[in-house]
């Protein structure tokens, strides 16, 4: 693993990459980034790409291109055999990565290589069984050592997350839980209390994948999260255009784009990812 000096391509943040929980105060780089973008009258752009697609090297280069073109937080997906929250585009990409020999250690290598080159927080998105089999503490330690900021866990609800809550307390890693339009008020409070970094507001009932219009459910959900005390709510699922990013950031703290970036990578390689990221980032400016 190379952890050579960051080249500061984005020069966007001066906070440490991962949080620490010393003296009971957390310093989440993701929270700091989101707060900084909010203070600037905007919101954060969060870009998803899976590790190992179309190859390990290209996936690292593509993630670096995200940061170089204005993405504020990288969400790096670990390919998994049974991705129930993912739609066809991400399924196809992660299946290809698995067929190409993706192993979990490639995930840590990718995080290290990306954080060595750019200074934006890197969150890892993973289904739960790979973490469980790797060992929750071992996984957290290696993610921290690689410079990762934390985990987004789409199939782990706080109710089942005791081991991960403990490991993230110990390491200071962020933990992003999901909130859905169908979640009860009590569950929204639970998601907010369990999360650090941000709460992932699922824009619509469904899986990942570009959609023509962002569901009005997203705005209602963010309003409910705010009423429940959330200071960091980012919206994901179905967001693919600069206009949609602008629309989301008018009320949310961040917009998460996944399938559209994966499709750009599939169709046009790393260069196309950079172009789309720059267009999406333009959607985060001059908002309010």
């Amino acid at each position: 693993m190379s952890t050579t000096s960051p080249s500061n391509l984005s020069s966007s943040t001066t906070t440490s990459r991962h949080g620490t929980s010393t003296s009971g105060v957390t310093h989440s780089a993701v929270e700091a980034t989101i707060a900084r973008r909010r203070a600037a009258g905007s919101g954060a752009l969060i870009g998803y790409l899976p590790v190992g697609f179309p190859s390990l090297t290209e996936s690292i280069d593509a993630a670096v291109a995200l940061a170089a073109n204005g993405v504020d937080v990288i969400e790096l997906g670990l390919p998994y055999s049974d991705p129930v929250m993912d739609g066809p585009v991400i399924q196809a990409a992660t299946q290809k990565a698995l067929a190409g020999g993706f192993k979990l250690h490639h995930g840590f290598e990718a995080v290290a290589a990306i954080t060595a080159q750019v200074d934006v927080p890197v969150l890892v998105m993973t289904y739960w069984n790979p973490v469980l089999q790797y060992g929750v503490d071992r996984f957290a330690d290696e993610l921290l050592a690689a410079g990762g900021a934390g985990l987004i866990t789409p199939d782990l609800i706080p109710d089942e997350a005791d081991a991960w809550l403990a490991a993230s307390e110990r390491t200071g890693l962020d933990r992003v839980f999901l909130a859905a339009p169908s979640s009860s008020d009590a569950r929204l409070v639970q998601a907010i209390e369990a999360s650090r970094g941000f709460v992932y507001a699922v824009s619509t009932m469904g899986t990942t994948g570009a959609r023509g219009a962002v569901d009005s459910a997203a705005r209602i959900l963010v309003d409910r999260l705010r009423a429940a005390g959330s200071t960091s709510a980012c919206v994901g699922l179905g967001i693919s255009t600069p206009d949609q990013v602008r629309e989301i950031l008018a009320y949310a703290d961040g917009a998460i784009v996944g399938s559209a970036l994966v499709k750009a990578l599939t169709d046009g390689g790393v260069a196309a990812v950079g172009v789309l990221a720059a267009e999406l980032a333009a959607g985060t400016r001059d908002l309010r």
């Binding site: 199939d155 109710d159 089942e160 999901l178 859905a180 169908s182 979640s183």
Partner: peptide
């Protein structure tokens, strides 16, 4: 229950 939050309700 290891499911997406969307299914919990």
């Amino acid at each position: 229950r290891f499911v997406p939050e969307s299914l919990v309700a």
